[in-house]
Every structure is written in structure tokens, then in C-alpha cells.
């Protein structure tokens, strides 16, 4: 799979503090999550990719464009939704987003058309003529998303997209992010504190800690690997059930108090487990497909 973002020994120093320390990674996912505690360097990494901070060592490439040499071409492929407020208060939402589209290279007529569409798309169609300064926090988040996607970028960078959103608005934002991800040729880089958001939207996760790569995992692969692991709770201890599982080629671990963890081979499904338990004189009281949650991965990375 072609690399979307390549980090090559990337180091960024602000003042005398090393914020990013020799980061190396090749990110290929359709939607990449950027996780880490406060001060891990997530926003610094995004700002460096945008060319706001110059690397002190190493480099990074986005779609093959070097951030040191090709910043202008690179920025034409990116749409950026910053974490903090970023708008011109006196401008109407539509005019602001239209200006952003024109600065990205769209001719004025197309920019106007796309600005209208973007506002309807994010659900602010009726508010588009109001000055952005009067928008609520949730509306500003949506307006920021509109300006990030108005020019149809290849990579949309979302820095804390669900910040300050109520549950309904958060759900709507996640839905929009998923729709954008589904568009062919569009990639996402989502930085968030909320593991749930990243888990829902991303297929690859880069976890940063103190400016270093703490972990890099492919969530899709993790999900696939965990697909056949089950935690089974039996109504009674049934050694014979565990033996029967082994006879069918399942690896299993029995803790002796009615709980069994089993890795099923290709073939038998959950219904077969219930039948097998019944034939060995026991009942399955609980059955859960085991998977490492992103939280587990994150906590492991933070250790």
C-alpha cells in the first residue's frame, strides 16, 4: 500500500525543547489516528506536516512531497481542521469558507458553489450567511470542518474534531468523518484524546509519548487477529466440554471455575459452541468475542 505519511527521523525543537524526537513511521491507512497524552507532540506533528514548524533533523513526506522542499504543493493536497478556534469573526460563514476555497486554488464561481455545498453537508445550511463570530461552539466546529473539506483535499487533518460537541453533534461529526473516509482517494489523519472517536474512525493508530513513537498499530489487523478468540462462561464446570473443544482443534484455557478462553479455528461458529456445551451437559451463560480494545493498546503503550 502506498505511504500516505512517511516520518523519517523527524525531530522538531521549539526554543530549546525537543518536542518531537526522531520519529520514524510509515503510515498507509485510509484513516490514521494520532493518539497520545497532553504534550506528547500530536499538534506539533500536525503543525510540522503543514510546514508551520521547521524540522531540526530528518524530514517527513506526505504523498511523497517533502515538507522541507515542497510545502506549497503539499498544502494544496491537505485540508486542515485545527483544534482551537480559527476564523475571522466578522466574515459570514459562507464568505469565509469561499475565501478558503479560493486560496486553495478553486476559481471564484466553483469556490462559491462548493462553499454552499460544504455548509449544507455539515448541516449549517441555514446558518451560512451569519457572521462566524456569532456561531455556537458546535457550529464553529462544523464550520471548521466545512473549510477543511471545501476544496476536496486528498488528506483531511482533523485535530480534536469532537472537542466541545454535545453527544448528538459528536455522533453527527463522527458520521461525517466516516463518510469522508469512505470517499475514494481521500485519507484522514485524526488527532484526538477520545479513544472511542479514534476507534470508530480509524484503521491505523500512531501513539505518541513524550515526542516519541510509543506504539503503532493497525487496528484492522488487530480486529482480524482477535476475531476468533472467545471468553466463555459456563453454567457448571465441565472438563469434558474443554476436552471436546480441544478435539475439534480449538486452543483453550480453562481456569477451573466455569470460565474458558478459546481460540476457534476457521469453521465452527458460535452456534456450534452452544450445541457442544449442551451435548456435554452444561450451558453457556456468557459468550463474548475477545478483542484488545484501543484503550488496552493505549495503556500498554503508555507503560
Amino acid at each position: 500500500m502506498a505511504a500516505i505519511i512517511e516520518l523519517e527521523q523527524l525531530e522538531v525543537t521549539l526554543g530549546r525543547r525537543v518536542i518531537l524526537s526522531r520519529l520514524s513511521a510509515t503510515l498507509t491507512g485510509k484513516s490514521i489516528g494520532l493518539l497520545g497524552p497532553n504534550g506528547a507532540g500530536k499538534s506539533t506533528l500536525i503543525n510540522t506536516l503543514l510546514g508551520y514548524y521547521p524540522p531540526t533533523f530528518g524530514t517527513a513526506r506526505v504523498f511523497g512531497h517533502d515538507i522541507r522542499k515542497d510545502a506549497r504543493a503539499l498544502r494544496s493536497l491537505i485540508g486542515f481542521m485545527p483544534e482551537n478556534d480559527s476564523f475571522i469573526a466578522s466574515m459570514s460563514g459562507l464568505r469565509y469558507v469561499r475565501m478558503m476555497a479560493e486560496l486553495s486554488g478553486l476559481p471564484p464561481a466553483q469556490a462559491l458553489e462548493r462553499a454552499h455545498e460544504a455548509f449544507y453537508y455539515v448541516g449549517l445550511g441555514e446558518q451560512r450567511y451569519r457572521p462566524i463570530g456569532g456561531y455556537s461552539l458546535g457550529m464553529r466546529q462544523m464550520a471548521k470542518l466545512a473549510q477543511a473539506i471545501v476544496h476536496g483535499p486528498r488528506l483531511v487533518i482533523l485535530d480534536e474534531p469532537t472537542n466541545g460537541l454535545d453527544p448528538a453533534a459528536r455522533k453527527r461529526m463522527i458520521q461525517l468523518v466516516k463518510e469522508i473516509r469512505a470517499q475514494e482517494g481521500t485519507h484522514l489523519l485524526v488527532s484526538s484524546h477520545l479513544l472511542r472517536d479514534v476507534e470508530e474512525c480509524c484503521d491505523q493508530v500512531l501513539i505518541l509519548k513524550e515526542g516519541r513513537v510509543a506504539a503503532f498499530c493497525d487496528l484492522e489487523e488487530e480486529r482480524r487477529a482477535n476475531q476468533h478468540v472467545y471468553d466463555i462462561e459456563l453454567a457448571s464446570d465441565a472438563r469434558s466440554f474443554v476436552d471436546a473443544l480441544a478435539a475439534r482443534g480449538c486452543q483453550s484455557a480453562w481456569n477451573g471455575n466455569g470460565r474458558v478462553r478459546a481460540v476457534l479455528p476457521e469453521g465452527p461458529d458460535q452456534v456450534d459452541l452452544f450445541a457442544l456445551a449442551a451435548s456435554h451437559g452444561t450451558r453457556i451463560r456468557g459468550l463474548e468475542r475477545r478483542r484488545d480494545s484501543l484503550e488496552d493498546l493505549f495503556l500498554k503503550a503508555m507503560e
Partner: peptide
Amino acid sequence: STILARPI
């Protein structure tokens, strides 16, 4: 931060 994220 949004204006300078454009190709200018």
C-alpha cells in the same frame, strides 16, 4: 492557522 494551511 487555517489561512496559512492553504497553498500560499
